[in-house]
Amino acid sequence: MSELIKPENLVYQKSKVLTDKVMHYCPGCGHGAAHKMLAEAIDELGIQNETIGVAPVGCSVLAYYYFDLDMTEAAHGRATAVATGIKRVMPDKYVFTYQGDGDLAAIGTGETIHTCNRGENILIVFINNGIYGMTGGQMAPTTLEGMKSSTSPFGRDIKTMGNPLKLTEIVAQLKGTYYVTRQSVHTPGNARRTKRVLKKALEYQKLNKGTCFVEIVSNCPSNWKMSPVEANKWMEENMFPFYPLGDIKVPEQ
């Protein structure tokens, strides 16, 4: 065995942009893969020392423990305002936010829209799993029609609870956004594509052409009350038809 563990035999290793801290995420949760893709993108671009991240409130509130990057923890919903403050005084740095649907599309809607509208040269990573994970499975702005949550126990009723919000399509309409796309990390192929997308979005920051917005449609096995495999299947069958994957706004050639 020791014969095998040699540097020359190494085919894959954890990105150095991730710390050794054990993640608190539930088994099968998409955050782990999303963190990994973002970390690898930063690593491959060689910008670990030039990147400042902003963590949200939600399941990824402790993201700053997992990324070996200088990071700031924002108040609930305020990540893009915090990132604006950072980018405006540190314009040469790569700045990103990492936010869930409650943080970005409910309490932080105002900040999200105005940050994108100003065209702040930052990357917004938006994890959409249609539910509040950290507080225990309450309805999110992105919860699908009929989808059960602890505050919509009989399913989301559009008449009384409103419609699921496609904030990504909204920000794509704003002149300030440069690149808007929707991806997933639930298969190796999708995860690799997401990494390419994140690399591109980070590189675009140097062009100073506006906000890059990457939605990652993800799962929540614990609060969806499904096994990881069931959750991914449910996501494909229910989330993807409403939140279709692919580029929504690409830079003009």
Binding site: A81, G85, G110, E111
Partner: peptide, 13 residues
């Protein structure tokens, strides 16, 4: 609300 959070981000730098 945004102003003070921009202050927070920049002050952290």
């Amino acid at each position: 609300v945004a102003s003070i959070n921009m202050v927070y981000g920049a002050a952290g730098c």
